[in-house]
């Protein structure tokens, strides 16, 4: 039996573009876990794959759009949310998931993130936060911890990182959660919840990049990073996202925000009905 035939027997295989495998990710990379959790969530929910659109930017995680068997768009660096806004508003019947990196969503694309959250456009945004720009060989980014080493912080990082869950909450996201690649079940449940909820939803996934970030900062193998997650993660649902800064000693994970607020689409529909009556 060929590897592909073996693959085909997997219960989640029907959600993937198998002909595109093996994927590009390194051994031990967290991005494969995100893909796994995402398609598991689709399966659990029985999502109509003809009405799902996955949009990604550029980066290692950005390749995810091309592996899922639905309509998908691998956009320009930083622009997946803006492009996804166009898709969602032009066809409100579609379910939109944006899956991209910390650099893509919060450096080059940071403006689109805060404005889509503010507008409350209906989409689920999942960020693979590996604390660096993996694709381009490991430069620092907006989530790189202070003092970390990357190719562009050879003497240690002197920039303060974003606390993404705080940022998302402040910008207006109706659902904000953080997990790590270790929390497979909880992450899957979180994705399911987000996909079913209306509005702008944000899930941060702390994801090991053993080949580049891990190596440069002497974090050991992926398995060592996973062990560390187990030691330092603390699940605190409803915790104040402002206080959930990631430190070397502690990563607070859980659901921080889960609120209701009219979406852009709903407000527009209301306006539309009044104007049509005139």
């Amino acid at each position: 039996m060929t590897v592909l035939q073996e693959f085909e027997k997997h219960p989640l295989a029907k959600y993937l573009r198998l002909e595109r495998f093996p994927h590009i990710w390194c051994e031990g990379c967290g991005d494969g876990i995100i893909l796994n959790c995402f398609v598991k969530a689709l399966d659990d929910l029985g999502i109509n794959m003809d009405k799902l659109v996955v949009v990604s930017g550029i980066g290692c995680i950005g390749r995810i759009a091309g592996y899922i068997k639905c309509d998908s768009f691998h956009t320009t660096h930083g622009r997946p949310i803006a492009l996804a806004t166009g898709i969602k508003l032009a066809n409100p019947k579609l379910t939109i998931a944006v899956i991209s990196g910390d650099g893509d969503l919060f450096a080059i694309g940071g403006n689109h993130f805060i404005h889509a959250a503010r507008r409350n456009v209906d989409m689920t945004v999942i960020c693979s936060n590996n604390f660096n720009y993996g694709m381009t060989g490991g430069q620092f980014g907006p989530t790189t911890p202070l003092d970390s080493y990357t190719t562009t912080t050879p003497y240690g990082n002197i920039e303060h990182p974003f606390n993404l869950v705080h940022l998302a909450a402040a910008a207006g996201a109706v659902y904000v959660a953080r997990w790590t690649a270790l929390h497979v079940k909880r992450l899957t449940e979180s994705i399911k919840k987000a996909l079913q909820k209306k509005g702008f939803k944000f899930i941060e996934v702390i994801s090991p990049c053993p080949e580049i970030y891990g190596r440069r900062n002497k974090l050991g193998k992926a398995i060592d990073t996973m062990k560390r997650y187990r030691q330092i993660c603390e699940i605190r649902h409803g915790y104040d996202p402002a206080k959930a800064e990631i430190t070397i000693e502690k990563i607070i994970v859980g659901e921080f925000i889960d609120i209701e607020k009219p979406t852009y689409g709903e407000l527009l529909q209301k306006q539309f009905l009044t104007i049509q009556k005139r």
Binding site: G86, L89, L94
Partner: peptide
């Protein structure tokens, strides 16, 4: 970016 997305949405 938005008009590209909208165009692909038909």
């Amino acid at each position: 970016a938005a008009i590209i997305g909208a165009s692909w949405a038909g």
